[in-house]
Design a protein around this nucleic acid. Structure first.
Lengths: 125, 125
DNA sequence: CCGCATCCACCACGATACTG
DNA sequence: CAGTATCGTGGTGGATGCGG
């Protein structure tokens, strides 16, 4: 039932696939932007308000990348003042599930990790 | 049944949790090392052979971090020549499942992403 | 065999200032 | 409101060489 070498999916190509995902999502703001967009379309400033600490520059860059990769759409309205709305594409939306799997793992195991880390550091001091 | 705001797990704390996981696993070699260790304990050189492109330095650093965080154990045998074996802990092993979820997402959607990326770049040229 | 020390290139990110 | 331009910096990771 459970293949012993499940990991072949990750290692099969020498890690190229898993590395490609990480290169895509592992930066500082991407997952935050994606999950913040889950409830629905949102404008730039609104996003910035919902993501504490993000600068205009980084939010802009992150959205540009997400748009380029087809995870987010960008709609510009010809109004004054200008209005721009961002929305997840189906592909972008599909990223939320594995991201939550990761978050679940974090919630469950980060305490263990921090404990182990402190023990280890204690022996070093 | 399905909460609309599932993403609260990721955004709830301003992203601290998800950022902590990423900081832990999103470097270049960690997931490769972890998944390579899935079948069982392995020695340093063996690991290096199974992970194409990794340098001694990076493999060593990655293993040190994994050990510190309690994801991997390190057993040194007092022999000549020296032998060192690495093995996943239960916590380390538990990381494989969400990693595979990410890999599945990658396998399914990376082609879309690359296509979108090419289209986008085409318009820029 | 295993792994650390050193040096160096690159880039992600932040702060700030400025525009349509 | 919704960005871009510019500059400065820390940290990651590659190459190389030495040591137990």
């Amino acid at each position: 039932m459970f293949s012993y070498e499940r990991s072949c999916k990750v290692r099969g190509d020498g890690g190229a696939t898993i590395r490609a995902v990480l290169d895509r999502i592992a930066d500082k703001w991407t997952l935050l932007v994606v999950t913040t967009l889950e409830p629905g379309r949102m404008r730039f400033t609104e996003l910035q308000r919902h993501i504490p600490g993000v600068s205009q520059r980084m939010l802009s860059l992150t959205l540009r990348h997400l748009e380029r990769d087809g995870l987010v759409t960008r709609d510009v309205f010809a109004e004054v003042p200008p209005r721009v709305e961002y929305e997840l594409t189906p592909v972008g939306r599909s990223l939320i599930t594995p991201a939550l799997a990761l978050a679940d793992w974090a919630i469950e195991h980060l305490p263990d990790i921090e404990e182990s880390r402190e023990k280890h550091d204690g022996r070093m001091a």
